[in-house]
């Protein structure tokens, strides 16, 4: 093998769900290790050195959020969380403690694979780090700090620019309001979540073709935002 095998740990207590996730991931040539409890999951994550973890939030022996916190003390690998609908607060808690993306049950394998690929891609791209970001008709020069649409410079306020560059730096991830506030406005503003919404609106009006149907800055209602670069 010329390329090292991509290793994924799946932590899920439902046998059947675990089975189809494994089936789907293996069909893409990933190596999959299973765990049916939080404890087991931590052991697998620690010993298998995985490239990604798929984690169910409703585990019988503990809170998935604790798993993420534990993992984040020693690893930066992407974590995709699986959770039930109408549990937005759980999702936000998981994302705030370090998860990168989430999927709502029931989900299709196509969705799962797309998310997994996006996370793996982000990880490999992170290393190269280009100073130029392009999406749609927008081109952002992160060195000269300029933004152009179809070659025409557009004006962003400092906060809008900071917000955009933070989004560009974290593509395909779900960013919670709290994370955005902390990183763009500073730690003293983490409760003013309407700031994010208002500025996100400004930003969309400037970089999206149709702000009511955004293609790049997507809203995950009740949770946060996701930036799609491609």
């Amino acid at each position: 093998m010329t390329e090292p095998l991509v290793t994924i740990v799946v932590v899920e207590d439902e046998n059947n769900i675990r089975r189809f996730i494994k089936l789907a991931l293996e069909s893409q040539g990933f190596q999959v290790f299973e765990a049916d409890s939080l404890q087991r999951g931590l052991i697998e994550a620690g010993t298998r050195r995985p490239d990604l973890v798929v984690l169910d939030l409703g585990l019988p022996d503990g809170d998935g959020v604790d798993f993420i916190r534990d993992l984040r003390t020693w690893s930066e690998i992407p974590v995709i969380v699986l959770s039930a609908r109408s549990a937005e607060t759980d999702k936000v808690a998981a994302l705030d403690s370090g998860a990168d993306d989430y999927l709502t049950k029931p989900f299709g394998t196509a969705e799962l694979l797309a998310r997994v690929r996006a996370q793996l891609r982000r990880r490999s791209r992170g290393a190269t780090g280009t100073p130029l970001a392009e999406f749609g008709s927008i081109r952002v020069d992160l060195v000269r700090r300029t933004v152009e649409r179809n070659g025409v410079p557009i004006h962003l306020t400092p906060i809008e620019y900071r917000l955009l560059s933070y989004l560009i730096g974290n593509p395909d991830c779900v960013l919670t309001h709290r994370q955005l506030l902390k990183n763009v406005w500073g730690p003293s503003h983490v409760e003013d979540s309407h700031y994010v919404r208002v500025y996100m609106g400004y930003l969309r009006k400037k970089v999206e073709e149709d702000p009511t149907r955004p293609k790049h800055i997507l809203t995950e209602v009740g949770v946060g935002y996701r930036f799609i670069g491609a």
Partner: peptide
């Protein structure tokens, strides 16, 4: 409600997932 929701959704999730997995066999 959470228990009911979990019990109803889990089999559906399995059903969706497995139906798609057929294509990968």
């Amino acid at each position: 409600l959470a228990a009911i929701s979990h019990d109803l959704r889990t089999p559906l999730s399995v059903l969706v997932g497995l139906a798609e997995s057929i294509r990968l066999t």
